[in-house]
């Protein structure tokens, strides 16, 4: 079954761009992506631009309204995701724990709904 792994972290805890720690984290992501590809778990995965680039869209009375900023102002923001094919929740938890951000942020693991017919 497919599991969505949503990667959350507080930007202040993230290694700064250009530091050795940042390089290490990116290498970690490279290795993780390769691992899930090699084991047939990788469905898709991407990093997102920061919340300062977010626009929140809603339609009210048939009018599209836009708002500058993310849907929710929180300290921990959604930074990216992996969609993984895993045997079960145990497998998904184990795999999600290998995502580099899990060490300073959090990964929310949610199964994808399978619609009947």
């Amino acid at each position: 079954m497919q599991f969505m792994c949503l990667i959350y972290s507080d930007p202040v805890n993230e290694p700064a761009h250009g530091t050795p720690e940042f390089g290490e984290m990116m290498q970690g992501y490279g290795a993780f992506t390769k691992h899930v590809q090699d084991t047939g778990k990788f469905v898709s995965g991407d990093a997102l631009q920061g919340t300062e680039t977010a626009t929140t869209v809603s339609v009210r009375s048939e009018k599209t309204e836009t708002m500058d900023g993310p849907f929710m102002e929180t300290k921990e923001v959604l930074g990216g995701y992996y969609l993984l094919e895993c045997a079960d929740l145990d497998d998904a938890i184990k795999t999600a724990a290998m995502i580099p951000t899990a060490k300073f942020g959090r990964i929310e693991v949610r199964p994808v709904v399978v619609w009947d017919n």
Binding site: M1, F3, C86, D88, L89, D90, A92, P111
Partner: peptide, 18 residues
Amino acid sequence: KGAGIAYKVPEVEDLPER
């Protein structure tokens, strides 16, 4: 029902924690 918790005794490597 929804979270994908498998109906099985955990694998040996997961057993201590579970």
